[in-house]
Amino acid sequence: MRTTLDTEWAIAWLQAAADAVAEHRVELSELDRAIGDGDHGENLDRGFSAIAAKLREEAPATPGAAFKLAAMTLMSKVGGAAGPLYGTAFLRAATAVGEATELDPVLLAGALTAARDGVVLRGKAEPGDKTMVDAWTPAVDAAKSAVAAGADVTSVLAAAAAAAEAGATATDPLTARKGRASYLGERSAGHRDPGAASSALILRAAADTA
């Protein structure tokens, strides 16, 4: 039972996230092609592979520094809706953990909450609008419950990832009310939201590396 997560984990997470995004690039763009403009996988892959490249050159000193590196890279490389949203998420997470070198369950759940709040602040989406918020919000709720129940960091992330995956799946029947998919109106129902799907992948990478 791990009590805290360190910088090494933060770096491993980002690298695993980059691998997961690369592996699911086509699939994410396919989802976006159905209800958006077909670039979500490409956009995220551009950003996360740049993160992975930077991490091969410089080693951040703290989890917060790793999150900040991710935030800046995502903001400058991704573009589209996802760039500022994920960028803000990682920036808020970085601020939340500050200079800490070890993240305990409370700090970890706090980081996830800050990330989700950043997405909501930027994008103004509410749960049920069929966006990445629908993956992040259940993930945050699950993480908080796990912390309250005394879970360790690994279990906190496992709970968050599972909830994010369920949240992403649950976007299928929804009608989009934010982002490009909203222009489709009811025709957006019956498709998974690409941003929710990528959020689930990224949170699963966090759990797998913990």
Binding site: D37, G38, D39, E42, N43, R46, M75, S76, K77, V78, G79, G80, A81, G83, P84
Partner: peptide, 11 residues
């Protein structure tokens, strides 16, 4: 100019 059909970035 951003990538094709993707907005440019703040930087």
């Amino acid at each position: 100019p951003g990538a094709v059909f993707t907005s440019p970035t703040p930087d």
